[in-house]
Simulated assay, not measured.
Amino acid sequence: MAKDWAAVSRAITTRMEELGLKQAEVKARSGLALQTVRELQLNLTSRDRPKRTLAAMSEALEWPSDHLSLVLEGKDPGEAAGSDLMVPTLRAVVAEFKNLRDIVERHEAELVELRALKAAIQSDSAAGKETRPDEPR
């Protein structure tokens, strides 16, 4: 199948507009030369490029690394890389669960301390001692 550099160009231009990026910003994100970014975005030269070039451009545009390679081959990157699109979301969910687990563990430790304090106060109360929370024992 012929390589569709025009489709790659359209995809890049559309994505840059969606993200509000200029060529210089894509250059900085991708590590590619500005001339390479221009050539890809404007389809100035339809020549083979290293896979890493399209991967860097894809990642700079917040796509999975194989996105533009799939576009070039005429494939639908949404279907081919559907599971890859979920990876960042799943990582964020896992990170949030870890954060929540840490919070719960801290609250459980505080609850243990509060229960011990309550038991001590009840014990003192039962023994007839008057204690105030602000007084040392």
Rank of each mutant, 00 (worst) to 15 (best):
A6S: 13
V8P: 00
A11T: 11
A11S: 14
I12S: 02
I12K: 03
T13Q: 13
T13A: 15
T13K: 08
T14M: 06
R15T: 10
M16V: 12
M16T: 10
M16R: 10
M16K: 11
M16N: 09
M16F: 09
M16C: 15
E18M: 07
E18V: 11
E18H: 06
E18Q: 12
Q23H: 14
V26Q: 02
K27D: 13
A28P: 02
A28Q: 09
A28H: 09
R29P: 04
G31I: 08
G31H: 10
A33S: 10
L34S: 15
Q35F: 04
Q35R: 08
T36Y: 06
T36S: 11
V37A: 05
V37Y: 01
V37F: 05
R38G: 10
R38N: 14
E39Y: 09
E39G: 07
L40R: 00
L42W: 06
L44W: 06
T45H: 15
S46R: 12
R47V: 07
R49Y: 07
P50D: 11
R52S: 14
T53S: 11
T53V: 15
T53Y: 03
L54V: 05
A55E: 08
A55H: 02
A56Y: 01
M57G: 03
M57A: 13
S58I: 04
S58A: 10
E59M: 10
E59C: 07
A60E: 01
A60V: 09
A60I: 05
A60N: 03
L61A: 03
L61K: 01
L61W: 00
L61Y: 01
E62D: 12
W63A: 01
P64A: 04
P64C: 06
P64R: 00
S65M: 04
D66G: 03
D66A: 14
H67F: 12
S69M: 03
L70N: 00
V71G: 01
L72F: 01
G74K: 03
G74L: 02
G74Y: 01
D76M: 05
P77Y: 01
G78F: 07
E79P: 01
E79S: 13
A81Y: 01
G82D: 06
G82M: 02
S83A: 11
S83T: 14
S83L: 08
D84G: 00
D84N: 08
L85T: 13
M86K: 07
M86P: 01
V87F: 01
V87T: 12
P88S: 05
T89K: 08
L90F: 13
L90H: 08
A92H: 07
A92V: 06
V93G: 04
V94T: 12
A95F: 03
E96D: 14
E96W: 05
F97D: 11
F97M: 09
K98V: 08
R101M: 04
I103C: 14
V104A: 11
E105R: 14
E105I: 07
R106E: 15
R106M: 10
E108A: 14
E110H: 13
E110S: 14
E110K: 13
V112K: 11
V112R: 09
E113G: 12
E113V: 07
E113T: 13
A116N: 12
A116M: 05
L117P: 03
K118W: 00
A120W: 02
Q122H: 05
S125W: 02
A127Y: 03
A127P: 03
G128N: 07
G128Y: 04
K129D: 10
E130M: 11
E130P: 02
T131P: 02
P133K: 06
D134W: 09
D134I: 03
E135W: 13
P136D: 12
